[in-house]
Design a protein around this nucleic acid. Structure first.
Length: 987
RNA sequence: GCCGAAGUGGCGGAAUUGGUAUACGCGACGGUCUCAAAAACCGUUCCCCGCAAGGGGUUGAGAGUUCGAGUCUCUCCUUCGGCACCA
């Protein structure tokens, strides 16, 4: 423990009280130059704040204190994300009501925040569990309900058996509950959803104009999961069922809300609405229409199969058995099972491929999801890995329709040479006795340095089949004549290269033929052939490293893997008149030819917001047996949580068992009705809290539009990255919805976002109670002070990085503050010398720019460097000390306020304007310039800033260290960078 | 498997965005003060050769672009985060 030169507890408390009492940080709605800087509000947990909070909150505090001194009026509020499960679970265990524990936790955390000296406007505090707040959360629900953006439906939902409630997709992590990591089950339940899918495209496009970290934007993009493709209708043949009335055999009608096209332009329900369908039709979605000639079967999801059964499809017992296994399954388990091994059953139904007019079998398999696209796919095993695996397992035909085109980089096609196309055979000749493969090593000098090593190669003559050509080439080139044809590799490749010997560019289509040697009998080979290449038998596992032409490398890879799906784009083959087109061209042309419809699909699902729990905002709906679900009248809000309930979860909300709560009259007909007993996901509360800060005590509305436009959208938002697809996505959705309803005038809530990284324990692991590596910020504040803790957390490294805590390192920061404290001992009135002004102006520039860019770690370094320099000055001019204290103030506000007040000046330190610097002062009188010879540093020379190349070059040439490198080597070139370096390039 | 971020001393990390790599701090070592210890202060501290002057090497690995690469390009390796049968 170091000796402390100042009493941090005393002075920190003193200034915290002063700021509080004088309301120094209250935001002014009428101030000019406004900025809204927001922290993600905490959940008031019993554990209180952790050091991770301090990092993010500290960073915004520094930024705000700095901005205030530059004359900006800041809104920087704080509040409580107070609803949620832990309080309720604690109530179940102890019987203490969530209201009580939450209140106590808030008291504690508010105290912690104040003890860190964070400059919040406490008059705007919000608490999402306060009826004055959740009244407006319920109001928000009603607005969405009226707009058709909140709806109830029976659907398979994620059920956490431990939390006894449903979860949103975003809250399921690796098939487990994000809270308790219990495996999530699927249940069929009637639940409330917000129609976030209506905004899929807007949520995606809106990202472009935001200043957000790339990883967060990428995560949102992936979560929204846009893919552009087409819908293709496959007529069904020989389906054995009683309904041939033109029913759209896809899941689309039922799930139309999930297929998002343009907002407000959703497909009409199509059951019975098709007048053009002669046969029943199954519609599939594909992004690879270019592969349709390779669609050798069709797969429907168990969900779609069930729908067919529901409308009268008579199925075999085999299918029934499969459905029983595949369908009711909990989806996570189903996926797990399917990942290991594909399963499925042939339905016996045929579908007509509209491109080939071939009839292909229709299978049911659980690797096709009922919840995406149309619930049915065309399977193209040659070009899709999943279809490939399925085809392998069930012995279904695989037809290659896309060919990869490779270019031989060693012998690339050349400009102004004749282009030729030909069909060729490449032969993999195997010796079954020793498993060796015959490779040809070309000797022909026309190939230059890059002599091909490849299989036996030859052109296919017009009169030949590929196997015939292969036999001929084997005999001609190698003399082996006792051979047997095994098969053609079902994978053609195409290669482009320049053939110097013939002086032309070749594009070849490679048919790879596999042959076995029956015996080693060999005929003699013509001298001309012998001169061209050597043939060598190469061990099977050496083949890959020997081959040096890309087409054979690729074929060999395919051969060795036992085949794979080639899923990249390429050139079409075996596709009738579309053969020869690129994938890209083919999509449009085939779509036009078969009448496929362009469509965009999203992975995003609607937001499930009901929770079967107590500690949340009740959903303001009344169920009337006559009138159906009715919105609670706005004048009757809030629907208040009853206090006297049994918290124990039973799979329905505890509220359902409070008669007093659920017995109501229908607001429409007045008859006895039942109040909705589910509460809302807490992410609904937090999706709009930042709006309430602008007008926190409004009793008549959620917020006043004018007050919101005063501050919003939020200029800077700082918080953890774990909310990437939760809170941050939901808040954007709610903002867009409120904008469309004209409650607000902007459609993005947070213009600039920064994430603080995780603070890890000293062991480099994530902090957790079970690991025992949790650091309590209160202890650090008590021992070293809030200024030290704030400074240390900033000094650890870049804001957004994950950083391990190191208790030892804190001492360095505290030592720094102790030295700062002692600076005052040497302070005296004295004029600043030129050198000192340069020092201060340089530091001012660095600190200012780094704060603006959130590079707070280097701000601390700069302040340390500056204080080390100032400590050498005896006496230390008063103006220098003042400047230093101002620069330090945003980071360590207590010590700098105290030292400032000790100087007996008129104003408080935070009332001072932020210092500026004079660009002229940033230059030293003399600077050192690096002298390089051929790019290596050899010396430095000193000269005045701005010196010309001539001056610097003369100095450099006069330097003895440089001279020794120039002996006998004339200077070819000189690179001169003003004020930085000179590089002498010699031969 | 796919998407993203990142690899620099014993450790946390700097590097004016292509121009003196290792700032600042921790730790370690040596010293001052002390009966002693702690604290504080001063000095040394990337690696190798050398008594020294000096020289050589070094930013996960390998190639490339450039007068010059931690920084740009490609390939690969490792770690972390996200998604994962999304057709």
């Amino acid at each position: 423990m170091p000796e402390l030169s100042y009493n941090h507890s005393e002075i920190e408390k003193k200034w915290q009280n002063y700021w509080d009492e004088h309301k120094i940080f209250a935001a002014n709605d009428r101030g000019r130059q406004r900025q809204y800087v927001l922290d993600m509000f905490p959940y008031p947990s019993a554990q209180g704040l952790h050091v991770g909070h301090v990092e993010g909150y500290g960073a915004t505090d520094i930024y705000c204190r700095y901005l205030r001194m530059t004359g900006v009026n800041i809104l920087h509020p704080m509040g409580w994300d107070a609803f949620g499960l832990p309080a309720e679970n604690y109530a179940i265990k102890t019987g203490r009501s969530p209201q009580d524990t939450t209140r106590a936790n808030i008291e504690n955390i508010r105290h912690q925040l104040k003890s860190l000296g964070l400059a919040y406007d406490w008059s705007r505090e919000v608490n999402t569990s306060d009826p004055e707040y959740y009244k407006w959360t319920q109001w928000l629900f009603l607005q969405l309900y009226r707009k058709g953006l909140a709806y109830q439906k029976e659907a398979p939902v994620n059920w956490c058996p431990s939390c006894q409630t449903v979860l949103a997709n975003e809250q399921v992590i690796d098939g487990t509950c994000e809270r308790c990591h219990t495996k999530v089950e699927q249940r069929q339940m009637k639940q409330w959803f917000f129609k976030i899918t209506d905004y899929a495209d807007k949520l995606l496009n809106g990202l472009d104009k935001l200043d957000w970290p790339t990883p967060i934007m990428e995560m949102q993009k992936n979560w929204i999961g846009e893919s552009k493709g087409v819908l293709v209708r496959f007529p069904l043949i020989s389906i054995d069922m009683s309904l041939r009335a033109g029913i759209d055999m896809s899941l689309r009608a039922e799930r139309s809300n999930l297929v998002t096209t343009k907002t407000g332009d959703r497909p009409a329900p199509s059951v019975g609405a098709r007048d053009d369908s002669v046969d029943d039709v199954v519609e599939i979605f594909t992004t690879r229409l270019d592969t349709i000639f390779g669609a050798t079967f069709l797969v429907i999801s168990p969900e779609l199969a069930q729908k067919w059964i529901d409308v009268g499809w008579q199925v075999s017992s085999e299918i029934k058995k499969y459905m029983a296994k595949a369908l009711p399954g909990k989806e996570s388990e189903r996926l797990e099972r399917a990942a290991k091994q594909k399963t499925g059953v042939n339905t016996g139904i045929k579908a007509r491929n509209p491109a080939t007019n071939e009839d292909i079998p229709v299978w049911v398999a659980d690797y096709v999801l009922g919840s995406y696209g149309t619930g049915a796919i065309m399977a193209v095993p040659a070009h899709d890995q999943r279809d490939w695996e399925f085809a392998q397992k069930f012995n279904l035909p695989i037809k290659q329709v896309i060919i990869p085109t490779v270019t031989d980089v060693d012998n690339p096609p050349q400009k102004n040479k004749k282009d030729t196309v030909r069909q060729v055979v490449h032969v993999i000749l195997r010796n079954p006795k020793n498993k060796k493969i015959l490779l040809g090593f070309l000797k022909d000098s026309s190939w230059g340095d890059h002599k091909p090593i490849n299989f036996i190669i030859g052109g296919i003559e017009a009169s030949e089949t590929p196997p015939q050509a292969a036999i001929r080439e084997i005999k001609e080139e190698t003399g082996y004549d006792d051979i047997s044809f095994v098969k053609e590799l079902p994978f053609m490749v195409s290669a482009n290269f320049f053939q110097a010997q013939k002086d032309l560019n070749r594009k070849v289509y490679v048919h790879t033929m596999i042959f076995d040697l029956k015996s080693e009998r060999q005929q003699s080979v013509k001298a001309a052939e012998v001169a061209k290449h050597d043939f060598k038998w190469v061990d099977q596992n050496q083949v890959g490293s020997n081959l040096n032409i890309p087409d054979d490398s690729m074929s060999w890879k395919y051969y060795q893997a036992g085949g794979f799906a080639f899923s990249e784009m390429g050139e079409l083959i075996n596709s009738e008149k579309f053969s020869g087109l690129t994938s890209h061209e083919a999509v449009k042309k085939i779509a036009k030819a078969i009448g496929a419809k362009l469509e965009t699909q999203y992975k995003l699902r609607d937001w499930l917001i009901s929770r079967q729990r107590y500690w949340g905002a009740p959903i303001p709906i009344i169920h009337c047996s006559k009138c159906g679900p009715q919105a609670v009248l706005e004048k009757d809000l809030p629907v208040v949580l009853p206090n006297d309930v049994d918290f124990k979860p039973h799979g329905e909300s505890p509220l359902a068992r409070s008669k007093e709560f659920h017995r109501v009259n229908c607001p429409k007909c007045g008859a006895a009705a039942r109040r909705e007993s589910d509460t809302m996901d807490t992410f609904v509360d937090s999706s709009w809290y930042w709006l309430r800060y602008c007008d926190p005590v409004n009793h008549k509305a959620a917020f006043d539009g004018k007050k919101v436009s005063t501050w919003c959208p939020v200029n800077l938002y700082v918080g953890g990255a774990e909310h990437a697809v939760l809170h941050l996505l939901y808040a954007r959705f709610i903002t867009k919805a409120l904008c469309d309803m004209e409650f607000i005038k902007f459609d993005e809530p947070f213009l600039k976002l920064r994430n603080q990284g995780l603070i890890l324990g000293e062991d480099g692991q994530k902090m957790s109670k079970s690991r025992g590596n949790v650091v309590n910020p209160d202890e650090v504040v008590t021992k070293y002070g809030a200024d030290t803790l704030r400074l240390y957390e900033m000094f650890m490294g870049p804001l957004e990085d994950a950083k391990p805590w190191n208790t030892n390192s804190i001492i360095g920061v505290r030592r720094f503050l102790d030295r700062v404290w002692k600076l005052a001992d040497n302070a005296a009135t004295a004029d600043l010398k030129k050198r000192e002004i340069i020092l201060l102006d340089k530091a001012t520039k660095k600190v200012t720019e780094d704060i603006e860019n959130f590079k707070v770690n280097t701000v601390v370094s700069s302040l340390m460097e500056l204080s080390n320099e100032l400590a050498k000055l005896k006496p230390l001019p008063l103006e220098a000390l003042k400047r230093f204290l101002i620069l330090l103030y945003p980071l360590a506000p207590h010590i700098s306020s105290e030292m400032w007040s000790n100087l007996n000046l008129k104003k408080n330190i935070w009332e001072e304007p932020w210092p500026t610097w004079n660009a002229k002062n940033l230059l030293d009188k003399e600077i050192s310039i690096v002298v390089q010879v051929n790019g290596s540093k050899r010396s430095t020379v000193n000269c005045a800033p701005g010196s010309s190349q001539k001056i610097v070059q003369d100095l450099a040439l006069a330097d003895t260290k440089v001279a020794q490198y120039l002996v006998g080597r004339p200077i070819k070139r000189v690179v001169f960078v003003k004020d930085r370096l000179i590089n002498l390039v010699v031969s």
